[in-house]
Amino acid sequence: MTAGVHETTLGLDHRKLGMWVFLGSEFLFFGAFVSAYILYLDTTAGGPGVEIFDIPFTSISSFVLLMSSLTMVLAHNAHTRRDMRRMRMWILATAGQGAVFLGGQIFEFTVFYKEGLNLTQSPFASGFFVLTGFHGLHVFVGILLLLSLYSLTLTGKVKPDQDLKTEMIGLYWHFVDIIWVIIFTVVYLIPDLLMEA
């Protein structure tokens, strides 16, 4: 596709390389929040702790986010085959699943608030809300990116031979997904088990 790629030192596209460089650094970002959460797992200041989690509910929204990675990669695949109709369909599906996940998170937050877990309650609560909140923000940015990609393909600004743009957004989206793979286990499942034990 890009003639320029063959002319760079490593034979890689700048933008894709840049995206990977950025994603590498994001682990340091989420890692710090996850560490604070782990540190404060028991620091509930008398308020609700991990027992408040609704594992079945979170499992479903986690599953939706995981499956959005499938539709994302299908969108990219369609784009590489210049099949813009399918590509747009999968993009919308991905954004939709992202929205379902976000909706689930908002619902979860609301329930927790009603049950007495709020940001100012305890270090545990702060750690939980800020970690999952920043993940949610990443999902939100991803949805914005997907929707703009969608509209730009409609206006012809993103052309059938520019599948790199879809791939880049896909990389970001998958990254947000694998971060949730970690969060789901480390934040929800393992603490839940520990609490029972």
């Binding site: 604070a36 540190l39 404060y40 620091t43 509930t44 200041a45 940001l119 100012t120 309650q121 305890s122 270090p123 609560a125 702060s126 750690g127 809300f129 800020v130």
Partner: peptide, 20 residues
């Protein structure tokens, strides 16, 4: 974390609720 503590009342570093 500092900003959430100062502006939004989060508890990351507040010893009163067990923050470190």
């Amino acid at each position: 974390m500092l900003q959430f503590d100062t502006v939004f009342g989060a508890q990351f570093f507040n010893p009163a609720t067990g923050g470190d």
